[in-house]
Design a protein around this nucleic acid. Structure first.
Lengths: 189, 189
DNA sequence: CCACCATACTCAATAATCTGACTAATCAGA
DNA sequence: TCTGATTAGTCAGATTATTGAGTATGGTGG
């Protein structure tokens, strides 16, 4: 049941349409949750019926009419309840890790390729997140912003994303390096 | 469809029963995939029907009879196919991140509590993983083991788990610290 | 001796997520 | 001018994952 809360949390900052929300929850960006458009539209409908968000139609002359949503008091109360409850631990579920687990029984070339790719992807997200941080804190330095900024939630989750992607990148590079060295050693013998 | 491959990868090292597998895929331990017992029993049944694993009953005098499974050649071929295919990126889906995203609209005390808890959990996993590494490489030092060890897949995923949990722990601590400082600053004003 | 935990599983039902296709309009580039 | 990308959604269906309960036996702590 956390998708609904993720949607509520995303709508705290700005009014958003389903489409904009879908962009935010997409692969490249999602720094605190991931979901597909279909899920989001369904969840928005449910949340509106439950009175936790309110939508208003915005007619655009050049683009299709969109529906912007904002969180209601009931929605905020729901988020509050959610926050009080214990968090369920987050678990790993990663194709690439499964492949590495099987590394000794499986073609090394493909593994190295995919590790390199993943490392590059992580680096790209790091660059993006870095820019995002700058945009959020503006002129202020990080220490100052975190102490006195008015809205630090997204900044903190972005920092989380950075920590995660750094770990990801470094592990991928290290692992690729190990596999390459073994390949080279095997080739020499 | 990666659960089946995770099961295959887990069975590469040792013959395991569904119950043992369930232990390994449990929260506390799972360092490359997570799943519940029911899923695993179901997957084992499917894999056996598909000829990718073979089970044999082991009668025990003091415990219920168990069924141990090992990977067949067909299973290995399936893993090989899986490895060749591109990995789907892994995404974040974490209750705690959602709560932090909403940090400015929600009770800070609960957040700090949950961050501290999560940090302690991450540290516990780090200790566990550290011991696991030692047990896997035995007397050898890491560099040597990674270059010449015969089975390094599980070692590499364990290193992945360590990187992940370190990031997790550090971010939780940092975030809790920030929230505490803000709480203190607000109390003074 | 009795409650509880560990081993070793099974079954059913619901909830969450993903795959894939479809509508319909505008805009930018070759 | 035709193609493809972008905006803004909707629908059906399949697959995965979670929740909750139940079976049966043996060992352990109080």
């Amino acid at each position: 049941m956390a998708l609904r809360h993720a949607v509520l949390a995303a709508l705290l900052d700005h009014e958003l349409s389903g489409y904009q929300l879908a962009k935010a929850f997409d692969l490249g960006v999602a720094n605190f949750w991931h979901a597909l458009p279909q899920q989001l539209y369904a969840e928005l409908a449910k949340l509106e019926k439950a009175g936790m968000i309110e939508g208003r139609d915005v007619v655009q002359d050049t683009r299709p009419t969109k529906r912007l949503f904002r969180v209601t008091d009931a929605g905020l109360a729901e988020l509050e309840r959610f926050t009080e409850a214990a968090s369920k631990p987050s678990f790993l579920r990663d194709d690439l890790l499964v492949k590495i687990q099987a590394a000794d029984h499986v073609d090394t070339g493909h593994l190295i390729e995919q590790l390199t790719e993943r490392a590059a992807f992580a680096q790209a997200k790091l660059d993006l997140f870095g820019q995002l941080l700058l945009r959020m804190r503006g002129e202020r330095d990080e220490e100052e912003f975190l102490l006195h900024g008015e809205r630090i939630g997204p900044y903190l989750t972005c920092l989380g994303g950075i920590t995660y992607e750094q770990g990801n990148r470094d592990w991928c590079r290290r692992t690729a390096e190990v596999l390459e060295q073994r390949q080279a050693a095997r080739a020499r013998s």
